[in-house]
Design a protein around this nucleic acid. Structure first.
Lengths: 191, 191
DNA sequence: TTGTTAGCGTGTCAAATGACACATTTTTTT
DNA sequence: AAAAAAATGTGTCATTTGACACGCTAACAA
C-alpha cells in the first residue's frame, strides 16, 4: 500500500485518520499475464491503482481490427470512468500484459468515502478531476504530434513501457502500424 | 438564460432556489466574429456555455502549423480545465469563428457555488465529470475511426457546424489536410 | 464600390503508409 | 527438450496522403 500512499500524498495533505480510512478501503490484488480484468458488456465496478505490471485496454473497429486505447502503467489510477460513474456496460476490453499487482477501490466504497466527510469528498474529487484532466491534455498533445513525435515522447517519458510492451501494441497506441513503427525505430537507431 | 436552464435540468433535479442561485452567478456576454476569448499565457478564468455561434480552440505544432483542438458548438459547457483548475497559463488560443452569445461563470463564483451547499457542490461536480468524461469518450472514438468515418460522424451529429465552419478548420479537427477532406467530400457526393 | 483578403476547388507529384509475405527469433506449452 | 505459438525484422508494392501551385468566388474593409 506504500505506493498508493505516496500517490495520494501528491494530491495534498489529508488528516492521518482520513488517509488511513481511505487506504483501508483499498484491497491489494494480483493478475496473471493474459488474465482479463474488464470484458465487454460488464460494468466496470472499481478504480484501479497499478503497483507493477501493465494492462492493455483496447477496443475494436467496425471491421474487427483491434485498437489500443491505453496501456496502463504502474503508479497511476485508472478506470473506465463512464462505465464506473453511470453503471453502463463497458464496450471495451482490458487484459493483463504481464503479471500485475494493483490496488482496487470498489464503487460502493468510493461513494462511501465521498459521504464520509467534506474533506475526503473534496480530496477524491480532486483526484478524479486530475486524472480526467490529464487524459484531456494527453489527447490534445496527441493531436498536435506526428506518430514519430509520439513515439519519441513515450520513449522519454516511459522507456520501461516500451521495453515491456509488444511493438504491435505500442504501434496501435500511437496510431500507426507495426511496420511503420519499425521504420521509425530503424531511422532513430541509425541517427 | 433559458438554454442554460434547460442544460442544467438535464443533469438532474435541483431545488428551485438553488437553481436560481446557480443561474444568478452566470452572466450573458457576446463576442464579435474574430474576437479573441483566450490568448496564450493568460489564465482561463471562466467556464463558458455557448448559446449561439462557434468558437475555435487551437494550438500550434513545433513547426508553427495551426492545429484545431476543438470547435465549441452551442449548447455545451466548455473551458480549458487544466488552466481553470490549477491557475496555470493557457498555452493555446480561442477565437470566435462567428458572432457568439454565451454565458460565463467566473472561477470565484464557481468555487462560491461549491461552498454553498452539498447538493450544489455535487451537482456542479457531476457536470464537470460529465464534460470531461465525454471528452475522453470522444478521444477514444477518434482513435478507432478513420478520417472519413470521423467526418461522416460529424456530419450526422452536427451538420450545422459543418455548414458554418471553414473546411480547413474541420479538416484540422478531424486530423487531416484541407485537400484530403476535399477528396473525401467529393467521394461522398459521388456515391 | 472597389480593392483586398480569406476561403474554396482541383490538378500534379513526391513521400509516407498500410497490406502482404516470409524468415528469424523469442516465448510458452507440452 | 521438443514442438507450437507469438512476436519481431524486413522487403516489395499499390494506395493514400500532404505539399505546392493556381484560378475562382465570397466576404470584408476602406
Amino acid at each position: 500500500m506504500q505506493m498508493l500512499y505516496e500517490y495520494f500524498k501528491g494530491f495534498g495533505n489529508l488528516p492521518n485518520d482520513e488517509m488511513d480510512f481511505l487506504l483501508s478501503q483499498c484491497t491489494i490484488k494480483e493478475l496473471k499475464k493474459g488474465a482479463v480484468l474488464i470484458s465487454p458488456n460488464h460494468h466496470v465496478d472499481s478504480i484501479y491503482f497499478l503497483e507493477s505490471g501493465y494492462l492493455h485496454y483496447y477496443t475494436h473497429t467496425e471491421l474487427g481490427e483491434r485498437v489500443t486505447l491505453k496501456v496502463v502503467s504502474p503508479n497511476i489510477c485508472w478506470t473506465v470512468l463512464d462505465s464506473f460513474m453511470n453503471q453502463t456496460p463497458a464496450e471495451d476490453e482490458c487484459v493483463a500484459l504481464t503479471d500485475v499487482r494493483f490496488c482496487e477501490l470498489k464503487r460502493r466504497d468510493y461513494f462511501a468515502i465521498k459521504e464520509k466527510s467534506k474533506s475526503l469528498s473534496d480530496f477524491i474529487n480532486r483526484i478524479v478531476e486530475q486524472i480526467l484532466s490529464l487524459k484531456v491534455i494527453e489527447a490534445n498533445n496527441k493531436s498536435k504530434m506526428t506518430v514519430e513525435e509520439r513515439y519519441v515522447d513515450l520513449l522519454q517519458k516511459n522507456p520501461e513501457m516500451i521495453r515491456e510492451v509488444p511493438v504491435g501494441i505500442i504501434a496501435s497506441l500511437i496510431g500507426t502500424s507495426r511496420e511503420t513503427l519499425h521504420r521509425i525505430r530503424r531511422r532513430l537507431t541509425a541517427a
